[in-house]
């Protein structure tokens, strides 16, 4: 298995991402990944905080229009994340922290789909009164994204050091 990961790492593309002095390789990929994060977590947190009572004059229903921005961020990060992963596969895929991050991304997305189902599809949405279930989903969404950001940030600090560093 580890041989396979090394093989991925040694591919021309992985080497370019990792070692190219060009600003367009690692730096810009990481920048796009950060902007993507801001779009995903930002839009999600905005909806969560609205459910929890922030900005009461802002109706929640039209905020659903921001979900395509979230999905744009998600696919951007799926692509840039894969690029960053193949550049450093043997370190990331042997790091438990990486799996924590992936698991919580999955939980966050399940949480989001539940918010769509139980909050946005709720006919009472226009009344601005949210059920305790909706409030729970908002809190759990905030928590899950916080774990994603924390574990993602910690990837730079914990686990075995890459053989390429």
């Amino acid at each position: 298995m580890i041989e396979f990961l090394h093989m991925i790492e040694e591919s021309a593309f992985s080497t370019w991402v990792r070692e190219s002095p060009s600003i367009w390789s690692f730096p810009v990929i990481l920048l796009v990944h950060t902007v993507g994060m801001a779009l995903i977590v930002g839009v999600s947190a905005g909806i969560d905080l609205r459910i929890l009572g922030m900005a009461p004059a802002l109706r929640l229903a039209p905020m659903e229009k921001f979900l395509p921005i979230l999905w744009f961020g998600f696919w951007t990060n799926a692509i840039t994340g894969t690029m960053l992963l193949v550049a450093d596969a043997s370190m990331k895929l042997t790091n438990p922290d990486f799996y924590v991050k992936m698991a919580f991304i999955a939980l966050s997305l399940i949480n989001l789909s539940m918010i769509r189902k139980y909050v946005f599809r709720d006919p009472l949405i226009e009344t601005g009164k949210f059920s305790s279930k909706a409030r729970f989903l908002a809190w759990s969404s905030l928590f899950c994204w916080l774990v994603v950001i924390t574990s993602g940030r910690l990837l730079a600090y914990v686990g075995s050091t890459s053989t390429y560093k």
């Binding site: 950060t34 994060m37 801001a38 779009l39 977590v41 930002g42 839009v43 947190a45 905005g46 921001f66 921005i69 994204w145 916080l146 950001i149 924390t150 940030r153 910690l154 730079a156 600090y157």
Partner: peptide
Amino acid sequence: WPACETLHFVGLCLLFVTVLF
């Protein structure tokens, strides 16, 4: 330092979503 970095990213998300909306 890593904790501050994480919080810096959380702050970035809050700021950016407001800027965006």
